[in-house]
Amino acid sequence: MGSLTPVETTSDGNFISTRLDALINWGRKNSLWPMPMGLSCCGIELMAMIGPKFDIARFGAEAARFSPRQSDLMIVAGTLTWKMAQAARLIYDQMPEPKWVIAMGVCSSSGGMYDSYAVVQGVDSILPVDIYVPGCPPRPDSVIDAILKLQKKIERESPTKKFFSGEAFVDERGSQALLYQPNAAVKRSSLDLSPHDPRTGSKNAPEPAKQDG
């Protein structure tokens, strides 16, 4: 039963009374349907995690679906480029509520070693991330640990409060969650010059592109 701490049990054991929040969360956390967003080498570890050797079926998350409509956990596994960022956000938008995101590996957590013009410096600048998994790539055990931590996080949510307050039905048009705001890493990239940059002290440095926001 896990977190479903029974408040009252009848003597014959056929009835149990508990809080609705605990019941809903118990159902959600034990049947996560991951959407494997395998973008690079982390995807291989993700496959190993789903396969029989590490076997996330033990934690109820083995039903990997490649359609966002049928999944509620997005595992961003690998380097997210700015070109792919649109697709990633679109897939996230198409997932039904409730939904969670795991950033697997350093590339999706912070850009990793790719401090480059092509790579998103952390997927948290375009998606709300719940759990970050370090490693390059992380071992399957680390990601399983992340799923266990996410289950603990889901336990603490209160879906009924969300439902009765109307928060779950708010049109996202005006909400900040929908709005892309460049993180510090992006802002820095257009201004700072590294000490090795040949541009330092040169007279014909290229003009930074005009802000179009």
Binding site: W82, Q86, Y180, P182, V186
Partner: peptide, 28 residues
């Protein structure tokens, strides 16, 4: 520069369009 000049330019443009054409009935 190594880290790029406005690498998110295309995404930002796309994101603005996305917010403008946001259809709640199609979003999860």
């Amino acid at each position: 520069p190594h880290a790029g000049i406005e690498p998110d330019r295309l995404y930002r443009k796309w994101d603005r369009e996305r917010r403008k054409n946001w259809d709640p009935s199609r979003a999860g």
